[in-house]
Design a protein around this nucleic acid. Sequence first.
RNA 1: GGGGGUGCGCCGGAGUUGGAGAGCCGGGCCAGACUGUAAAUCUGGUGACUUUGUCUGAAUAGGUUCGAAUCCUAUCACCCCCA
Length: 410
Amino acid sequence: MYLIVLSGPTASGKTRLAIELAQHYKTVVVSADSRQFFREMNIGTAKPDAEELAAAPHYFIDSHSIETAYSVGQYETEALELLQQLFTKHEVVILTGGSGLYLKAVCEGLDPFPEIPEAVKAGVEADFQKHGLPYLQEALRASDPTYYQTVDLENPHRLIRALAVYRSSGKPFSSFRQNAAAGRPFNPIYLQLQWPRATLYERINHRVDLMMEAGLQQEAQALFAQRHLPALQTVGYQELFDHFEGKIALEEAVELIKRNSRRYAKRQLTWFRRDGFWKLFQPHEFEQARAYIDLCMEENLAWAQQRHSDRTQGQLLQSDTPIAQFERTTRNGQSLSVVELPPPQPLAWLLWHQLRLMAMEDEAAYLTTPGGLSPPDWPKVPPSAFPGWAHRQVTEKVVSPVARYRIPKV
RNA sequence: GGGGGUGCGCCGGAGUUGGAGAGCCGGGCCAGACUGUAAAUCUGGUGACUUUGUCUGAAUAGGUUCGAAUCCUAUCACCCCCA
């Protein structure tokens, strides 16, 4: 059983690729989007439209109302139940969405925490309103010195949550936080959509204009009375609420929606970067994504990479055994991508593909192959999948016996 | 053509009676944190470099002065008024 996890920043094209993959694998799409659950919100959440919903069955779209309190914990439980059912009928299921914590909840699991009565949480929030942040910090120091050491003490949400858990259960927040990976009956295959940053921002700006044309203002107007609900603390709605309250002009609200969407996308990228298991694709690379998924299933593959300050190192794993390595270093504005290739085998093109994406924003990128191999020697590479395949050998800086190729920009 | 005004960081604003600036505020951007509000919430950075520090810097070139972003001259750019 495989769960194809398709993510990427907002406006990167997840919806569309998810549907293409669902059609190809004759399966369904499960949404992990923390806003598309809500049936009252449509335009501003970029929900799949009727045509897209008809093209493949979707779950967790319009499944909840903004009136009911909803949390990642509940989502994890409900999603797991659903997946269990789905896997009885499908070998492969697609999970897509941009909310990192929600994806993590499904794929890795969150530690079990006790239910917190609404009154307790409201009590802590009231104390915060009354006494301010120092009160929360002091209360946490007294009740949970362990968490106090690691938590961001400037972040009220974190402190309120920890104190509410303590007050309702009598046990410190950190005692529940085991960071234990939950067992899952399926294998995730992680795919992430990538654009050059400038292009992504253009797409976001453009999509906001389209949302406004589609009637986002009217949609927000209808929800104005409920603007204090947690679900409506959302980019695209908050800014318009401010406009309706007369705080800002409409034009300004639209600009702020664009800016806040860009910031959101940036935070998503930060979140995803920390997990090194994402294999990057461009949104039009359906064939490559499909080939990667098939290889992962046939060869039991996994992707693993790590970022340091100025370099990225990674491995391609086969049943936990490294079978290929790659590295990228950045120095003085110049970038260099290096790959240590195994003997010719069908997976080498994955590395080539990855390096081309890494080279996307770099001035120069190179591929080195030990033993004088050249990329065309690699079998099973679908040439049509790589229109930029044309490479040229770089002669000036060849480090014998390693062959060096310039990687074309995407 | 004549008169007046303004020029420093990626952008906008503040500040200047000649006295310590890599330096205030806001924005943008970059980077980061984040186990139940997560499209939320929070943090840091943003002249250069060989970064415990060093160097350069107030449109450009000169000048006055112990000392110039501040005063003077020329040039350039932009804005306003008059023709």
